[in-house]
C-alpha cells in the first residue's frame, strides 16, 4: 500500500487563510502561534475575513499585524481596547478584535480594559496570559503567580511586598457591560479546538451587539520560564491552571 494521499481532494487541515505566509517570530513552542491560528480559523469559519479589523498590542505579539491577513492597526501600549472602541463605533458593521498579552492588557492597559468592558463595547478582547513580561525579558507582571520566579522577582513573587496576582477575567466578568468571559488554553489539540469555539462564539455575539467578550488564553513562555516547550506546558498545567482555572467565567443568561 503505497497510495499517495497527498492530493487536494484529501486535504483535511492546512494553515488558515486568514493568516499570511510570513514566518512567525515567536520562540519555539510559544502559545501565541497557536492562539493566532485558532482566532484566524474562527474568522475563516465565519467567513468574515474581509470584515474583520484587528488591533495589535505592544509586547511579544506586537507584530501580529504581519501574521493576520485582515486589516490591522497597532495601538499604543495598553490602549488597544480604546482604539477598538473608536473603530467599532465608526464602523459598527465590522468585527473588531484586540489581541493583547498580560503586560499590555492587565498592567499598563488596565484602565482601558476595564472601561471598555464596563461600557459594553461590542468588541472581542483576546487576552494571552503567560504570567510574565515576555518581550522585555521575563519581568514580573501583574499576573505573575505567588512564588513564581521572574527577573524582577528572582526569589519568587512575595505577596507581602509585591502584591497579589491579578485575575483580570474574573474582574471584568463582574462588570455589567461584559457579555461573555471565558478562559482557555492552546497547549493540547483538544484545548486549542475549544479555544477556537470560544473565539467563534464571541464573534457571533459581536454580530448580535451583545457587549464586550473577553477570551483569556492561559499560555506558556518557554524562553523566560527557562524550560523546554513540553516542560513549560506541564508547568503551566500544574501551576497556572490551579490559580487560573479553565472554563467559562461569565456566560450569557
Amino acid at each position: 500500500m503505497a497510495e499517495n494521499l497527498i492530493k487536494p481532494e484529501n486535504l483535511v487541515y492546512e494553515k488558515s487563510k486568514s493568516m499570511t505566509e510570513r514566518e512567525l517570530h515567536y520562540c519555539p513552542g510559544c502559545g501565541h502561534g497557536t492562539a493566532h491560528r485558532m482566532l484566524a480559523e474562527a474568522i475563516d469559519d465565519l467567513d468574515i475575513q474581509g470584515e474583520t479589523i484587528g488591533i495589535a498590542p505592544v509586547g511579544c505579539s506586537v507584530l501580529a499585524y504581519y501574521y493576520f491577513d485582515v486589516d490591522m492597526l497597532e495601538a499604543a501600549h495598553g490602549r488597544a481596547p480604546a482604539v477598538a472602541t473608536g473603530i467599532k463605533r465608526v464602523l459598527p458593521e465590522k468585527y473588531v478584535f484586540t489581541y493583547q498579552g498580560d503586560g499590555d492588557l492587565a498592567a499598563i492597559g488596565t484602565a482601558e480594559t476595564i472601561h471598555a468592558c464596563n461600557r459594553g463595547e461590542n468588541i472581542l478582547i483576546v487576552f494571552i496570559n503567560n504570567g510574565i513580561y515576555g518581550m522585555t525579558g521575563g519581568q514580573m507582571a501583574p499576573t505573575t503567580l505567588e512564588n513564581m520566579k521572574s527577573t524582577t522577582s528572582p526569589r519568587g513573587r512575595d505577596i507581602k511586598t509585591m502584591g497579589n496576582p491579578l485575575k483580570i477575567s474574573e474582574l471584568v466578568a463582574e462588570l455589567p457591560g461584559t457579555y461573555y468571559a471565558t478562559r482557555h488554553s492552546v497547549h493540547t489539540p483538544a484545548n486549542a479546538r475549544k479555544t477556537k469555539r470560544a473565539f467563534k462564539k464571541a464573534l457571533e455575539y459581536q454580530k448580535e451587539n451583545k457587549g464586550t467578550c473577553l477570551v483569556e488564553v492561559v499560555s506558556n513562555c518557554p524562553s523566560n520560564w527557562k524550560m523546554t516547550p513540553a516542560e513549560s506546558n506541564k508547568w503551566m498545567e500544574e501551576n497556572m491552571f490551579p490559580f487560573y482555572p479553565l472554563g467559562d467565567i461569565k456566560t450569557p443568561k
Partner: peptide, 16 residues
C-alpha cells in the same frame, strides 16, 4: 499535530 503546531508547518491529508 497540525492543530497544536504554533508555526502552522503541518498540512494534513486523509483518504476519503
Amino acid at each position: 499535530c497540525a492543530v497544536v503546531c504554533p508555526d502552522a508547518v503541518i498540512t494534513v491529508y486523509r483518504e476519503k
